[in-house]
Design a protein around this nucleic acid. Structure first.
Ligand SMILES: [Zn+2]
Length: 275
DNA sequence: AGTGATGTTCAGGG
DNA sequence: TCCCTGAACATCAC
């Protein structure tokens, strides 16, 4: 269930697989709903003979830039991941998309819950136009963040989960950033003061860059657990201060971390450090 | 065994 | 405009 650090790590690991510069020679899909805007046959005829020029990320999307000036955009949603490439084609459980490159290796997309999406995009700027700013760029300033947050009616957590406000945050890193900022997730956006907005912007960058340094957060061991390319675990779980720590002591004040439901999501906070 | 929860997003409706 | 709900699915912990 990848957020920005997990998607960035996956993208970086995909680059390391060495497919850039190669032509796509075959394409198979076994679950049509993963293909967003066309049939498997059309994806295949569109992709085959095109060269992979670049791999990059925007928000939680991975972009495969192709030689026909078009883009294969992949969203991992909850459980999407890329398996270790293999020379011989096989179709294992939970594997839904297979892309073969000219060195004959198959790039394998697996997705336990099948929520992931592959989309062919022509106008990439238009496709991403609605998204909020990239929080790890220098252009993500206090002023920009303040403008994006606005003074809207709802609570701060829901606001931060909205990809149109800030791109790339998800449930883990929102809870963590709010903890570092001493702000309760339930606080109304309009009640988040200017100095708190500055601290929140810094905290967002802190939790995301720490997450990235640790190659993402792998929480469990089951099928739905986040893993980067070839099944490598992220190491960021040990750094989490509140997420999935309900019932345990706050590292700062020793209060018991609480968990409630907010924005239809499990939400973790310290009742003493956050207000 | 049944029930609710799970790291995402989208559409629909109040 | 904003947010809640349900849906898209499979697995896991009670
Ligand atoms: Zn505390």
């Amino acid at each position: 269930m990848p957020e920005l650090p997990e998607v960035e790590t996956t993208k970086n690991d995909l680059i390391d697989l060495g497919f850039i510069g190669q032509e796509i020679v075959d394409f198979k899909c076994h679950w049509d709903n993963i293909l967003e805007n066309d049939t498997c046959q059309n994806f295949k005829s569109f992709l085959v003979h095109e060269k992979l020029l670049k791999l990059w990320r925007r928000a939680k999307y991975i972009v495969f830039e192709l030689s026909n000036s078009k883009y294969l955009v992949v969203h991992l949603r909850m459980t999407g991941q890329f398996a270790k490439p293999k020379l011989d084609y096989e179709h294992l459980k939970h594997e839904h998309v297979h892309i073969q490159f000219e060195d004959n290796r198959w790039l394998v997309y697996k997705d336990t819950r099948k929520f992931g999406k592959f989309t062919i995009v022509s106008d990439i700027d238009a496709y991403f136009k609605h998204l909020g700013p990239e929080p790890l760029l220098d252009s993500f300033t206090d002023k920009i963040f303040d403008q994006c947050l606005g003074k809207t009616k709802g609570n701060i957590k829901s606001r931060l989960l909205n990809q149109l406000v800030v791109a790339g945050l998800g449930n883990i890193y929102v809870d963590e950033a709010l903890y570092l900022s001493h702000i309760l997730p339930t606080r109304m956006v309009k009640d988040v003061k200017p100095f708190e907005r500055k601290l929140l912007r810094k905290s967002i960058q802190k939790v995301l860059s720490d997450g990235l340094d640790n190659m993402g957060t792998s929480l469990g061991t089951g099928e739905g657990n986040y893993l980067s390319v070839s099944g490598r675990r992220g190491q960021n779980k040990q750094r989490l201060k509140v997420f999935r720590r309900e019932g345990l002591e706050c590292f700062d004040c020793k209060s018991i971390i609480l968990k409630v439901k907010l924005a239809s999501r499990g939400t973790h906070y310290c009742p003493k450090c956050q207000s």
